[in-house]
Design a protein around this nucleic acid. Structure first.
Length: 273
DNA sequence: AAGACCATCAACCGCCGGAGT
DNA sequence: CACTCCGGCGGTTGATGGTCT
């Protein structure tokens, strides 16, 4: 489309699965130089891919801090809760699941959770038919996801605002440059990042801005080992976010610490100045 | 054993909105 | 204001591997 670069020559862009060499080229380039303009990344990295493809590959696969493997129970619940509130806003849902990408969540939803919810709804309607005439307190006995949906309607406007809020998103390029500064002139290696923090503990700001805040509402006890939200009701979650945003306003800025697990003992001073 | 069918996941496509000119 | 470029998002597709018949 519009992003097709240069009329002259019209570069042939490779499609399909990425080879390990391509991955390495892209990873090394971004770790060393940041991504900047994606359409130029492919050229500078010596790839025959278009910028979008590079971006997607980085975000969904190469980016440090990505969680691989099965979704935990908590993550599932978080997805279902947020989906009942936000609908198919995968990127917003992904912001609440550290290390998970919107694409991953979307796929997981379509392949697994959607069916589960449908099944649950079926069961629920069965139950409602059974008890429809027996009592008037059906609201109290309604399944939890229905309650959550109700909460969702109360929170939906706020949620929208919250996600388009004044939260200072830090782009990976910026984060990288900060990290470069703090680690001297040597380019950090992907492996060293993983070794220092543990792969699951790395996160990027853009995907999960709230999760980097040592003072934030989810610091400390709200986190489990996977850095996912645990045992937090939807209301609590968004109220917390509101509180947190008030803090931002009050303080004027926040401390963003990349790649640091809030519950870990790793000193943040190595990663941010 | 082999073909049909299904589930999963990586990647692509098209659209939209913001920024720049 | 109109246009272009670019990044981001959500929907969809296609490849692949597993299961069923």
């Amino acid at each position: 489309m519009g992003s097709q670069q240069g009329e002259k020559g019209k570069p042939k862009h490779r499609k399909g699965l990425w080879s390990p060499e391509e991955d390495n080229k892209l990873r090394n380039h971004i770790l060393n130089h940041g991504h900047g303009c994606w359409s130029s990344v492919s050229i500078k990295a010596g790839l025959q891919r278009n910028g979008k493809s590079c971006r997607l590959r980085w975000i969904n696969y190469l980016r440090p801090g990505l969680k691989k493997g099965m979704f935990s129970k908590q993550e599932e619940e978080t997805i279902m809760t947020l989906h009942s509130m936000l609908g198919n806003k995968w990127s917003q849902i992904a912001q609440h699941l550290a290390g998970r990408t919107d694409n991953e969540i979307k796929n997981y939803w379509h392949s697994y959770l959607k069916k589960r919810v449908a099944k649950a709804k079926e069961m629920e309607s069965h139950i409602q038919i059974q008890y429809a005439t027996s009592s008037s307190d059906t609201l109290d006995s309604s399944p939890s996801h229905q309650k959550l949906a109700t909460q969702g309607t109360q929170n939906i406007n706020f949620t929208k605002e919250a996600n388009q809020s004044t939260l200072p998103k830090l782009l990976f390029a910026e984060w990288l440059s900060v990290d470069h500064v703090s680690s001297g002139n040597s380019a950090i290696s992907y492996d060293s990042l993983n070794l220092r923090n543990g792969f699951n503990q790395n996160q990027t700001f853009q995907e999960a801005p709230m999760h980097y805040l040592p003072e934030g509402p989810f610091g400390g006890g709200e986190y489990n080992d996977n850095n996912s939200l645990t045992h937090i009701s939807a209301t609590e979650m968004f109220n917390s976010q509101l509180k947190f945003e008030n803090q931002i306003v009050a303080n004027g800025f926040i401390h963003c610490i990349p790649g640091v697990d809030l519950s870990s003992n790793i000193s943040i001073s190595n990663y941010a100045i």
